[in-house]
Simulated assay, not measured.
Amino acid sequence: MKLCFLSHEYPKHGLNPGGIGIFLKTLAPELVRFGNKVTVLGANNSNSYEEYWDQGVRVIRIPNPKIPVVNWWVLSRRLKKKIIEIAPDIVEGSELSFAFLSKIPGAKKVIRLHGGHHFFAEAEERKIDAWKGYQEKRSFKNADAFIAISDYVRNHTSSMLSFHGKPVVLIRNIVDTNRFYFSPKSSNPNPRSLIFLGTVCEKKGVGNLVKAIDLVRAAYPEVHLGIYGRDWEFPDGRSYKALIRNQIRGDLEKHISIHDAIPHDQVPGIYRSAEICIFPSFMETQGLVAPEAMAMGKIVIFTNKGPGPETIQHGVNGYLCDPHDVHSIVEAIEEAFESSDRKEELAGAARARVLDLFGIEKNLDENIRFYRKILHG
C-alpha cells in the first residue's frame, strides 16, 4: 500500500514534536518494515521546501509562507497538489485535515481521532470557535473512515460530531517497547523523585502538581519533582513557566526544578532517573507519556479523567488521581511511595499492560488490516 500521513509535527532537529509527531515517528517506519510505501507530508516551520528519507519514510515539508487570513487556503492547495503527485492509496490526518481536501483521486481518507476542536472545547469548558467548528464538521463529512486512539475519544467525539455512518475502529497508539524497555539493573532511581514530562501548562495539571509537592514534603522531606517540557503562553504573551517559578519560593525551591523540553530520544533516560512518573492532566485523548513510562516498569500516576482508567488499573499497574483535586494528587503520590515493597510486582504489571494495549506487533497488524478493509471493502 501507498500511505500518506498529513502532519506538521513529524520530528526534526530544532522542532519539538507533539504527541502526533511522536506517534508517526513510531508507526511510519514500522509500516515501511512491512512493505508499505509511506510519506509524511506537512507544512514546514519556514517558507522553504524540504524532502528527505527517515528510516525508509519519505518526509516532505512544503513551504509555509504564513500569510495572514489566507494562509490556510495557500497550504491546502499546496498539500492537495503534492498528494495528487504522490498518488497514495490511503491519506490519513487528524480531525481538521480534510476540511478543504474533499476530492483526492484514487485515495481513501482516514481521520485518526487524536482529539479535535470539539473534543477539547468540551473538555476545557469553552465555546466552539465557529470557523474551526465548521472546518471539523466539513472534514468529518469528507472522510471515508475513522480510527479512535481510545474509547473515550471515540465516545465523546461521537456525542458532538457525526461519523456519517462510516467505519470507526479503536486502534491504540503504538509504544516502542524496544526503546522504552525495563532493565532491572537500572531500576534503582533517586529515592522519592518524580518526573513530569509534557507541555508546562495548566491543563496538564502542573499548577496543582506543584501545590501537591508543597504538601507532600512535610511527610517526605527528600521529595523532588523534575518538570520537563516546552513553555505555554497566555493569550497576552505571559509565560506559564514564569508563573510556576513565581510559586516555587523559599524552601520549595529545593524540591522542584524546571527544565527545557528534551528530544524524544532522551526521554527514556529521564524516566529511568525517577522513582515515579506523574501526569495529572485535566484531559487527554490517550497520550504517550504514561504508557511509555509504564513500558519501562516505572510507577506511574496518571489522570483519572478521560482515558486514564483505560490505561491504568489503580493499584494494580499504576495509580490514578483526580487532577483537579490537590489532595487526590497528594494521596496518589504518598500511596505510590508507600508501595515500595510492591515495586517489582507493579513494574511487571505495568509493562504487561503496555504490551497488551500498546504493543507494536498487535497494533501494527490492526492498522494494516483496517487500511486494507477500507480499500477493498
Rank of each mutant, 00 (worst) to 15 (best):
V40S: 10
F337E: 08
T303Q: 08
V70F: 05
P17R: 13
R249M: 07
E233F: 15
T303S: 15
R77A: 05
F119K: 03
N173S: 10
E338Q: 15
G226C: 07
H259A: 04
A295H: 05
R372G: 09
W232I: 02
W131F: 14
C201W: 01
H8L: 06
I262V: 15
S257K: 05
E122H: 09
K132M: 14
N36V: 09
R238N: 09
G308A: 09
D265N: 14
K254D: 09
I62P: 02
Y152A: 00
N178A: 08
V168T: 13
Y134W: 15
R272F: 00
D231Q: 10
F5A: 10
P63G: 02
K127E: 14
N155G: 05
I276T: 06
P63D: 02
S48Y: 04
Q247H: 07
K203H: 12
R342G: 08
S97Y: 00
V74W: 05
G287H: 11
F98P: 00
G306N: 00
G348R: 13
R369I: 10
R351C: 04
R245V: 01
G106D: 03
I60H: 06
A219F: 11
D129N: 15
I86Q: 11
G21D: 01
N317P: 08
I147N: 02
D231S: 13
R61W: 09
F196E: 06
E334N: 10
M283G: 11
E334S: 14
H264D: 15
A121C: 15
R272E: 14
A347C: 09
I213T: 03
F120M: 07
C4Y: 00
S48Q: 15
K203P: 00
K80R: 10
D176H: 03
K362I: 03
R245C: 04
E335C: 10
L320F: 14
L113I: 08
P235S: 07
E334L: 13
N173M: 00
E85N: 11
P191C: 09
Y152G: 00
K25C: 07
Q266H: 15
W232G: 03
I195W: 02
V175E: 04
K343D: 10
R217S: 06
Y181D: 09
N45F: 15
K241P: 03
G226V: 07
E361M: 06
N173T: 06
P11L: 12
V74R: 02
D151K: 15
G250C: 12
V267C: 06
S273I: 01
G348N: 12
V168C: 14
L194I: 01
P167A: 10
K80I: 08
E202S: 12
G318R: 09
A293M: 02
E122Y: 08
H255E: 04
G133H: 12
L225I: 02
R77S: 06
